[in-house]
Amino acid sequence: MADPDNRPFAIRQYAPDQLREALRRMYLIRRFEEGAEQSYMRGLIHGTMHLSIGQEASAMASCIELSDQDKITSTHRGHGHCIAKGADVGRMFAEFFGKETGYCHGRGGSMHIADVKTGNLGANGIVGGGIPIAVGAALSAKKLGRPDVTICFFGDGANNEGAFHEALNMAAIWKLPVIFICENNKYGMSTPAAYATAVPNIADRAAAYAMPGVTVDGNDFSAVAEAVHNAIARARAGEGPSLIENLTYRWRGHSKSDRNRYRTKEEIEDWIAKDPILRFRAELITHGILDEAEAGAIEAAAAEAVEQGIEFAKQSPAPSVTDVTRYVYAEA
């Protein structure tokens, strides 16, 4: 978008407080993921988990305009979305530690982290599982006359699932207020998106469903924010869904079992050099939103919040083993 003052979209669009809060949440995501990794290595977290280090701009810029009434559906790589949508990291850690105080009372863990009260309908362990659900949430908004939009996160792997195609088609024919955000981090587990997907850009899929499709630099906060802003405007205006492809990269392996055999150290280092947080931070400093000391304070506060979160989770009680069937059905 052409702009007379030449400043990036995000700087023009959002208030300084909003931008500082966005930076804070991006640091919170980074420190949270590192804290989770540390806790996992110490055996405090069992199962597995999928870290989103390197994808913070995609998560945060996509959610910056959302209220608690707006919904998101997330993926197995969903910690960042959850924090971007406003979740408390203490309750998230508690969930990862399997504690009763966790968002899912220890029943879901990393792969099902959710915070229904802030509109996060949950991470999903099934690739593409959340896509039709997001369309259903958008259908609810439309039928019940609510102004909410739904943001549907999924990875590049999910764009080859049948659910993706069926859901995009339905969202389009019914003009539903949903924004499909593909976080293309280049690999579905180990399979390159370029190998597995017939079109060069996943956003090209949008043409098949008569909706706008754009590919943006997913590590550029402002670029993501602008694309999502336009899609939300279109959705709220009743014009239907959009597809946005954020090109990004996960610094870590697919999950904790990943041996990273399918990519090179050089490639990983290239992407680490494109750190979306440092980039956004520099942008904010350049445009006078904050200075170096303020940025440092935000970063330190995030680290502090994560430490407190881990402590809260450690101290929290585990669920009672007699409650193994609790929450299967509604309680009378």
Binding site: L44, G98, K99, K314, P319, V321, V324
Partner: peptide
């Protein structure tokens, strides 16, 4: 810094049930 292998993360319902 932290007590090595800390508590079992969660109870193991399946084993007891």
């Amino acid at each position: 810094a932290a007590p090595a292998p800390a508590e079992e993360p969660a109870a193991k319902p399946a084993e007891t049930v």
